[in-house]
Amino acid sequence: MLDTLRRVPTPEGFELTLRLAGPVARALAYAVDLVIRAAVLLALSISLPELVGGGAGLLLIAYFLLEWFYPVAFEVWWGGATPGKRAFGLAVLGDNGAPVTFGASVTRNLLRAVDFLPMLYAFGLVSMLVARDFKRLGDLAAGTIVVYRDRPGVRAAIPAAPPLAPAVSLNLEERRAILDFAERHATLSEERADEVASHATPLLRRGAPPARTLLSIANHQRGGRPI
């Protein structure tokens, strides 16, 4: 099964499932950061001469810091994401799924200079298209990955129906599928919902509409409390 996940086993016996981020989202995140940096620099170039006078040198320093330490600072102290990455739900992590370390962040950002070669991040783009886990050269050297951040899962409301115990015992995956079905019921057309539900044959009863039956089971799973 083709997918874009990276699974990392932890010493504590559970598995991290990381959703790797590829070039399209990352390029857009970079563009957002570029705009932010340019805006900051523009604001400084207007305000600095007023405030301290003769700001050319200071401006150069500001540019230098923005270019090299803007990403590092955000990646290390703001949950692994620059504002641009945050806007697209991205975060930088170490290969083992742990938060990116300072050294790794510095490495991957200094090596942006190599990714930039020969022009406009062409090496970085090709590397992302070719390398495992969509890594650019800096990621390869620093041992980092860029992933989609998981949002803390708040389950949506499900349509109310009289609770019904399932006819067979269900494993975790199956129970999850039934809850998903109930949550997404509203986005499916009525015919399609019944058609999808009709595949769960062991749970259905003769004569009862399949989608309603599954909704009842979902309500039972939620402890009979319609939310």
Binding site: F14, P99, G103, R175
Partner: peptide, 30 residues
């Protein structure tokens, strides 16, 4: 095979714990 909601909650706690505890600070540029 407890309910998916409990499993998801624990999973999220474990993930966040992993993030919080494995983030190495210090010895940065070593």
């Amino acid at each position: 095979a407890y309910g998916p909601e409990l499993v998801d909650r624990l999973q999220s706690l474990a993930l966040r714990g992993h993030q919080a505890l494995y983030g190495s600070r210090g010895n940065a540029m070593a």
